[in-house]
Simulated assay, not measured.
Amino acid sequence: MLPRSEIAKAAGITLNPVAIVWSDKKPENALEFKKGVWSCVMWLFAKVAKEGRTAVFTRDTTTCAGGAMGLGYGRPFERHASRSDAGFCSFLSNGIEGAKDKKTYQAIIAESFDDHHRKMLTEGERFFKNPEIVGNFLDTLPIYYARDRFIVMKPVHEVEEGEDIKSIVFVANADQIAALSTLANYGHGNIRDGVIVAAGAAGCQAIGVCTYAESGSELSRAVVGLTDLSARKNVRTTLGKNVLTFSVPFNLYQEMEKNVQGSFLELDLWKELRDSG
């Protein structure tokens, strides 16, 4: 097993740092969504962080299209209420107003599950100005294909040596995000490119594919997430309202763990901030 995180201890992070692992073996007694029932990936992530449970996802049980994209199960637009990539671009932006094929999109709205979905499809989520900009977003969102592999979330200290670790995720408040950002840049001094914000990405996409893509880079970056308004609403009861995620690929996590000793995290300035409540 990996040791408990020195970063979390020094930064005063009480929620479990969560490891996202790809595996060929399904863990026993893990939390799992029911096949065919829509569910938000971040619900189970929050339980892992808060309660120290293990959660497992498969391509068939990850019914949210955005969640499937985020964890690494390709681009299953057909699972979304909008039915296609063009429909998804309209949904994520300005709905029927921006749809190029309004007749087809209107038919999708008419066949929707209920009034709630019809309203969402009609108005759009308005997270992007128009469908073309959603297309740009999708072009820059990394794509992974886990296919039939299990994707597991569990506390870092329960990860076994040799597991395929894709991402390590901290849930942190503003002071802790400041500390984590400083530590991520501690060994490089690259101010502009050391930490990125996953603006516009879903909560699961930030901790998932956006972070996976940093693994093995010449300068692996940390990703600040939970900037997704829907995800924030979905985890607020479990995690609180004043937190963000801070995720790193495993190689950067290992570097940061080594750099705790001798860093600012041992000095009074940080300890006063950390302990001030």
Rank of each mutant, 00 (worst) to 15 (best):
R79C: 01
D115C: 08
E78R: 11
T122G: 10
T104Q: 15
M69G: 06
A65W: 05
F127C: 13
Y105D: 02
D114I: 04
K35F: 11
F91T: 02
T104V: 11
F128N: 09
T122F: 12
R75K: 10
S84M: 01
S84R: 05
G67W: 05
V48F: 09
D114H: 06
N29E: 10
N94M: 04
S82L: 04
G67Q: 02
T63S: 14
I108D: 10
A81E: 06
H80N: 13
G72I: 02
A86E: 13
R75C: 08
D114P: 05
A30K: 08
T61S: 11
S90V: 03
T58V: 03
M120G: 07
V37Y: 13
N94I: 03
R118Q: 12
D115T: 01
S82G: 03
I133M: 13
G95Q: 02
T58A: 07
F57V: 00
F127G: 15
R118V: 01
P76Y: 03
F57Y: 08
S93Y: 00
K100E: 14
E125N: 15
A30F: 08
A86R: 14
S112L: 05
C40N: 15
F128K: 12
D60G: 09
N130I: 00
A46D: 02
K34C: 06
F57G: 03
L44A: 13
G72C: 05
A110D: 15
E111T: 09
D114C: 12
F88C: 03
G36L: 07
F113M: 15
T54H: 08
E28T: 03
R53V: 03
V134M: 10
P131S: 02
L71T: 00
G36R: 07
G36I: 01
G67K: 05
S93R: 06
F91S: 08
L121I: 00
F128G: 08
G98K: 02
K119F: 10
L31G: 03
K47G: 09
D101V: 01
A30H: 05
K129P: 10
S112F: 06
I96R: 11
I133P: 12
G70M: 04
T58P: 09
N130E: 06
M69D: 02
M120V: 08
I133F: 11
Y73I: 05
E28K: 13
P76C: 07
M42N: 11
M69Y: 05
E125C: 14
Y73K: 01
F127A: 14
K47S: 11
R59E: 12
L92E: 10
T122V: 05
D115N: 08
T54C: 08
M69P: 07
A81N: 08
G70Y: 05
A86I: 09
G70I: 00
A30N: 03
P27V: 00
F128H: 11
F33Y: 13
L71F: 02
Y105Q: 03
A81F: 11
K34E: 14
A46K: 06
A68F: 06
G124F: 01
N29H: 13
F77V: 04
L44N: 11
L121T: 00
R53M: 11
K129V: 00
K47M: 12
T104A: 15
D85I: 15
I108H: 10
H116P: 09
A55F: 02
D85S: 15
A86G: 09
K47D: 11
V134T: 01
Y105G: 04
N29R: 12
G135L: 08
A107Q: 04
S112V: 01
S112G: 05
R83Y: 06
A30D: 02
E132M: 07
T122N: 11
